[in-house]
Write a protein that binds this DNA or RNA. Structure first.
Length: 601
DNA sequence: GTCACTCGGATATTCACT
DNA sequence: AGTGAATATCCGAGTGAC
């Protein structure tokens, strides 16, 4: 029996069935959309009998054609498949259809309507041009074409681009004159992070971090940038000799950061704990800090992030060692590594343990025992119906090709078996459970938004394991600066660890997420929560006033919104550039402000 | 080389509500 | 019928494991 961890006495039992007043779109949509199919199923003896007798022998009757059309195959494809298949039976017919689908051999495209293809190709090439055009402009691509009317005015064009760069940097909190100088130094083609690097180098030139800014100009940033953004080279900003964590010097080579296999971080609960690390002086708290991001970021991103965060080696952990769903993330933090303890109760680590009722329906040919990464989108009802029909029209077990198709979709969309031949996405409350949140934590917002927020959140048990060392260090509670808080994964983790939060300053852009955190806070906490919408308003002056008011931060914690980093974002994956660049540097800027202000006071 | 996996987004379409 | 919200669909990359 699985137990929720919740503050409600009456909610300690996980129910597979959703609550009565929940809409259950995932189930009903499929069912309601196919009432005719459903009633037909009642009339037939059962899937295996029907397959054995064979619609195949009956020939391509209108009803059987429609049946496959309802499965999502184009009518022409069905007719062609039936013609090609002859009397070989339903099973091979489905195989044939799936093959057509897999290889894109759609007769409806090949034969008649070629008109659909040409505009498609034209659009594609247009997109490419636009994308290549955009790519050189890290940071501004969301701001619209402010300079696209001056095509024949190169000078104005250049000046406008320079202004945009400066404006971006000012928005990030830099003084305008320094931003302008940096753009002059590095060229307006330099990416935001290079500019950031340059400004920061100037600001800290006298602090023993590293030398002067002319050094910077040796790196050919100022020239016209021809390479891809990922090829921009970042410099090592902090002293090499003192770090000792990496042998290679200079940071000229963007060496990829190898991911550990298995991805267990520095240690796991009940595992060997022989890890020792010495942190560079600048990295040692107070405050403690904890930065999270996707492990599978584009090449060079982690190297750069690590370099900015005091050369601390990331701790890469897959949450599949903590719960029944994978979640590969990297964490850079300066927390002690010894005396970690896992949250109780220990969550189930297999699907069957987490959702026992799925076991009854789980086919032997589906080897999954854990879910893949829970993402922000879920499968459509139509896909579920296609899968159901593909299976009900197959024997048991289904042929290899059907198995492969179904398994691929199940893995891709994290589908669970909830009935005979019936798969469905996890409900939001089931995702809450897997991620370690209290039941109904995100309830009250739209289903889509729940999925989006949950897909972006921490896995609480994983993060709590790392944070558990703070419990004995702060018996009287902590002051926390929480950046990009989302639905409050960090706060929930600290709460479940029994750590009191005296003051939490939380920065979160999304209003629904702020509401979720506030609502949870009011139910569970006695401390003070201050929610900030826009990270840009958290200037060093603001930070200082907060620090003066509450006496300093004990922990700066933040996950990085990864919309440009995740592997699943195939179109706009631009590494540590553009919007993500700004977000990471806000994290870094704020952390650095907190450190220097606290040192000064 | 193949394969699996990935904290997504713009746009078209449908749905729910007034 | 009009509106905004929710949903469906297309898109097809980069990386590491093998």
């Amino acid at each position: 029996m699985v137990h929720w961890v919740s503050d409600n006495e009456d909610s300690d039992k996980f129910e597979w069935d959703s609550d009565d007043d929940d809409e259950e779109v995932g189930f009903n949509a499929a069912g309601a959309g196919s009432s005719a199919l459903a009633s037909r199923n009642i009339d037939v003896p059962g899937p295996s009998t029907r397959v054995a007798n064979g619609y195949g022998k009956a020939g391509p009757s209108a009803s059987s054609v429609q049946e496959y059309v309802a499965m999502g195959f184009p009518e022409e494809m069905v007719l062609k498949a039936m013609k090609d298949n002859g009397d070989d039976g339903v099973e091979s017919l489905v195989e044939l259809l799936l093959t057509y689908k897999a290889i894109g051999n759609d007769p409806s495209v090949n034969n008649g309507s070629t008109s659909g293809c040409a505009p498609q190709a034209a659009e594609d090439s247009d997109d490419d041009i636009l994308e290549n055009w955009d790519t050189d402009d890290a940071g501004e691509r969301n701001k619209g074409p402010a300079f696209d009317e001056s095509g024949d005015e190169d000078f104005l064009h250049e000046m406008s681009r320079k202004d945009e760069k400066v404006e971006s940097l000012v928005k990030m909190g830099f003084p305008e004159d320094e931003a302008a100088m940096a753009v002059t130094r590095c060229g307006q083609d330099a990416s935001i992070d290079v500019l950031f690097d340059s400004i920061y180098a100037s600001q800290t030139a006298g602090d023993g971090y590293y030398g002067n800014s002319s050094d910077h100009e040796d790196n050919s940033y100022g020239g016209r940038k021809k390479g891809r953004p990922g090829n921009t080279r970042k410099r090592k900003r902090f002293g090499d000799e003192a770090q000792g964590s990496r042998g290679s010097l200079g940071g000229i080579n963007d060496e990829p950061m190898p991911l550990p296999n298995p991805m267990i971080g520095f240690n796991l609960p009940n595992g060997p704990t022989s890890v020792y690390r010495s942190l560079p002086g600048q990295a040692i708290g107070p405050p403690y800090f904890y930065y999270e991001n996707v492990a599978l970021a584009p090449k060079g991103v982690w190297t750069t992030i690590s370099r900015f965060l005091y050369d601390i080696q990331p701790e890469f952990v897959d949450s599949k060692f903590f719960c029944a769903a994978a979640r590969k993330r990297g964490y850079i933090h300066n927390l002690p590594l010894v005396n970690r303890s896992a949250l109780r109760p220990i969550p189930p680590k297999t699907i069957f343990e987490a959702f026992p009722r799925t076991k009854k329906w789980w086919p032997s040919w589906d080897p999954r025992r854990q879910f893949n990464c829970l993402q922000t989108c879920v499968a459509s009802a139509k896909l579920l119906e296609r899968i159901r029909l593909a299976l009900t029209n197959s024997e048991d077990p289904p042929p290899q090709r059907v198995q492969k198709y179904v398994l691929e979709e199940c893995r891709k969309w994290n589908l669970a078996w909830v009935g005979l031949n019936k798969v469905a996405p996890l409900e939001p409350d089931e995702m809450e459970f897997l991620l370690g949140f209290p039941k109904d934590h995100t309830r009250g917002i739209s289903r889509t938004e729940r999925y989006r927020s949950l897909g972006n959140s921490f896995q609480v048990d994983t993060v709590a394991y790392h944070l558990s060392v703070l419990r004995d260090m702060f018996p009287h509670g902590m002051n926390v600066l929480s950046l990009f808080s989302g639905i409050g994964g960090a706060e929930v983790a600290l709460h479940r660890l029994g750590i009191r939060m005296n003051n939490v300053i939380s920065v979160e852009k999304s209003e629904v997420n702020r509401t979720i955190l506030k609502s949870w806070w009011d139910q569970t906490q006695t401390g003070t929560l201050i929610e900030i919408t826009d990270v840009q308003t958290l200037t060093s002056e603001k930070i200082e006033s907060y620090i003066r008011r509450i006496g300093g931060f004990d922990l700066v914690i933040g996950g990085s919104p990864c919309n440009n980093l995740a592997g699943s974002n195939r179109h706009h994956r631009d590494g540590l550039e553009g919007e993500h660049s700004a977000l990471f540097y806000h994290y870094f800027r704020i952390l650095d402000s907190v450190k220097s202000i606290m040192e000064r006071l």
